[in-house]
Amino acid sequence: MCSVCGCGTATIETTRKAGTPDHSHHHGHGHDHTHDHDHDDDHAHSHDHDHVHTPHGALDYGAGAAGAHAPGLTQERMVSIERDILSKNDEYARENRARLADQHVLALNFVSSPGSGKTTLLVRAIEDLKDKFDIAVIEGDQQTSNDAARIRATGAPAIQINTGKGCHLDAHMVGHALDDLPRQDGGLLFIENVGNLVCPAAFDLGEAHKIVVLSVTEGEDKPAKYPDMFAAADLMLLNKSDLLPHLDFDVGACLAAALRVNPRLQTLVVSARSGEGLAAFYAWIEARASGAKAP
């Protein structure tokens, strides 16, 4: 343990190369001093610490001498904070959720890899549902407002969010988009996330449900390869079912893989092109929309 600050009881995570010994570093902090440290294996060595061991065995030479301080001149202390890294996003998400609940809007966050047919599906759903619901759309893409333009062609209001280099929408962006959308009391809000089967899983936007869209051209093991997204979703739409006769896609194996990741996941096989399965999808939405409206 470091005598200056008392730190150093935790093990720093390292990615070890095969053959390198597993040992705990007791010096993961940025000030210079000499000390002994124990290795779990039984070799002894001494070395000067002019660097900081960052996680995974990387060495940071910028954090040693430059970050050094004279003990006694400044007082170091450990501060326990215990805060979730996503707490900021989650605060914004709570605000969005409260605002949507206040307006009895059912918000659905559509997530998928690029090219699964999300926008086509949304355009079709808006056409089919617009007599029953006011529908607004938030479109997330890195670049272009092509998707928002496709949505607006249906008559539904749409806000495009360009994330630039960002790989996902966050709750703060969605809050700003809500500011710019007309109120849709009692209606639906479709959020089309950035096409990315990884990152959007972690970010709560304030939606009622995440809906993961997978298309039959993508391979039935996607849920096993990208489990986080399927674990985070409440409904999976297996899209482009009209193409099944031309493919070797095993629907049963795909659904089984999805259910292994998330036993509570509901699944529907649909085609935005032929309309197959969409009635069931709309029934799913309507059941939840009436829940959002209930006092």
Partner: peptide, 20 residues
Amino acid sequence: GRRVQMTGGDEMRVKEMEVE
């Protein structure tokens, strides 16, 4: 068996820090 509910392992927290 597969009837397992995950109870831990998806934490993302800032636990503590050393400050001056």
